[in-house]
Computed example of a mutant assay.
Amino acid sequence: MHYVSIDLETTGTNPARHQIIEFGAIIENTNKNTDLQNLPRFKRIVKHPEYTGQAFAFNLNARIFQELVQPTGAAQFCEAPELAQQFKDFLLNNGYETDEGKDYVRILAAGKNFAAFDLAFLKNLPNWRDHIRISQQILDPAMYYINFKEDQKLPSLEECKRRAGFEDVTVSHDALDDALDVVRLLRQHY
């Protein structure tokens, strides 16, 4: 089975008002034992003419804004309307195909809180549904790490990492790093 672990960094929590500023994705094939460092990766810092958001999100993502102001050459950038096409091209270059007779690629997505958070932002992204369709089934690693007797909500990514026994439970809030953490958490169960 193939899935794509996706994580976003945004300027806030409201998908109707706030913006995606970083997109990270990793393709996983559960039938192969590919070294984590060799998995196909896609990452973009997303540029906008203006940024609207919440102070905590700007602070949390200060490194992204620093890269926008003073590019180091380490990051790839795109405009918001270009992201979906670039991501689709990445998928096509890594074995995915468009649905028969259609121009979009359908994927099984994975991510911590992807269904409740990231997906709403992606649906508001220009051209997203022209290029990408997300399966209704979404993998969230929290289901493997919930304690149904004690938890009042799904565990955070940090708590999932702690319960999985990871040495480093820090959440970097780098879209690609966090997408990789989801793969690492899910791999413990296949």
Rank of each mutant, 00 (worst) to 15 (best):
H2Q: 14
V4N: 03
I6M: 00
D7H: 07
P15A: 00
R17M: 12
R17S: 10
H18T: 05
Q19C: 02
G24W: 01
I27H: 02
N29Y: 06
N29L: 05
T30F: 01
N31M: 08
N33P: 01
Q37R: 11
R41V: 14
V46W: 06
N59K: 14
A62L: 13
A62K: 15
I64E: 03
L68T: 04
V69Y: 01
A75R: 04
Q76P: 02
F87A: 10
L91E: 05
L92Q: 10
E97V: 09
D99I: 13
E100I: 15
G101E: 09
V105K: 00
A110M: 06
G111H: 00
A116V: 02
A120F: 02
L122N: 00
L122F: 01
K123L: 09
R129W: 06
R133V: 10
Q137S: 14
L139W: 07
A142N: 06
Y144T: 01
Y145S: 03
N147H: 09
F148E: 15
S156P: 07
C160T: 07
T170P: 05
S172R: 14
H173E: 12
L176M: 13
D177T: 12
D177Y: 08
D178W: 06
V182F: 00
V182L: 06
V183K: 00
L186F: 01
